Amino acid sequence: MKAYQEIAIVECGEAIAAIPLEQFAVESPHPYQKLGASYGALSPYYLRQSVLDSLKVAQALLQQVHQGWQIKIFDAYRPVEVQQFMVDYTFAEVVQARKLNLTELTEAQRQEIWEQVYQFWAFPNLNPATPPPHSTGAAVDVTLVDDTGKTVNMGTQIDEISPASYPDYYADSTDAAQQQYHIYRQLLNSVMCKAGFRRHPNEWWHFSLGDQMWAWAYNQENPAQPMTARYGRLV
């Protein structure tokens, strides 16, 4: 169990809403559907209504700083079944990258690879007390697009399992390109946090509002006024 999963959930019952894709830049076709993940009756482009409203505010704040820039949505709502699909896919990717044989892994190797995967991916848990953040409809993976329509280079791809994906990885770099990665990550974090979101501690691209991770981050900043989560897993 991760620290944020200890936060209590008091479900508010707010409806999930379709993201108006014409108002944002969008990763298309959706990266997980392209791999074969099935979302059932919904699509990945859904969020709780208040979370969607706040995402619109974040984009407006971005455009006050950089006219014509947009938030690019990589992923939003994710059923637990898709979480399981992607966790298994990522495990296999790590095995392949290390040139190992999946059927010949030792138990120690399996354990070490799973630990690496779960630094970035939430466990695909069906326990309503500990839902994966994206399955609540309150988490979104985003990046930036400039006024020419080009995706901004943030230093790593979304979902990259690497220390370079940690939000402040490039903070102390003296390399000019890496300094720029950090500036762009800070810009994204600034507009999202001003709109009410909080960022995943290990992922520069993951933001949430109202779920357990959001409440945990809020409570780190405001220990005297702790919050509970208001969004649980959508079923």
Rank of each mutant, 00 (worst) to 15 (best):
P29F: 07
M154P: 03
Q178C: 07
I71G: 10
A25V: 02
A177N: 11
S54Q: 13
T106E: 07
N219A: 05
P132W: 01
R110M: 06
C193I: 04
A176C: 13
W204T: 02
A138L: 01
G210N: 02
I16K: 12
Y169P: 07
Q84F: 01
P132N: 03
P132F: 05
D88V: 00
T151E: 01
D147G: 02
Y181P: 05
D159S: 13
H200K: 13
A138S: 07
I73S: 10
A217Q: 14
W114L: 08
N219F: 06
E112Q: 15
W121L: 10
L234H: 08
Y32V: 06
A217S: 10
T151G: 04
H66T: 06
G13M: 01
L187P: 00
V94N: 05
E14W: 02
L61I: 03
R78F: 00
A164V: 09
L100M: 11
A76C: 12
V140D: 08
A177F: 05
G36W: 00
P44S: 11
G68H: 02
Q67W: 03
A215C: 00
A138T: 07
Y231T: 06
A139Y: 00
Y166T: 15
A171R: 15
V95E: 01
Q96N: 12
Q70W: 04
E22M: 06
T130A: 10
Q84V: 06
G137K: 08
P201E: 05
D88I: 04
H134A: 09
T106M: 09
H134S: 09
Y184K: 12
P133F: 03
D168L: 15
Q63I: 09
A18N: 15
V65R: 15
A108E: 14
L62G: 13
S50E: 03
C193F: 02
A215Y: 02
V51H: 01
Y169F: 15
W114H: 11
A58H: 14
Y181D: 01
P31A: 06
S173N: 13
C12H: 01
G40N: 12
L105G: 11
N222A: 02
Q83Y: 03
K150T: 04
K150M: 09
A217P: 01
K2V: 05
W69H: 12
Q83V: 06
I7N: 02
A171M: 11
Q83K: 08
K194T: 05
Q157Y: 07
Q186C: 01
A129N: 14
L100F: 04
E221K: 13
Q220G: 03
Y218P: 01
G137E: 06
W114E: 05
Y4K: 10
A177T: 13
D75F: 04
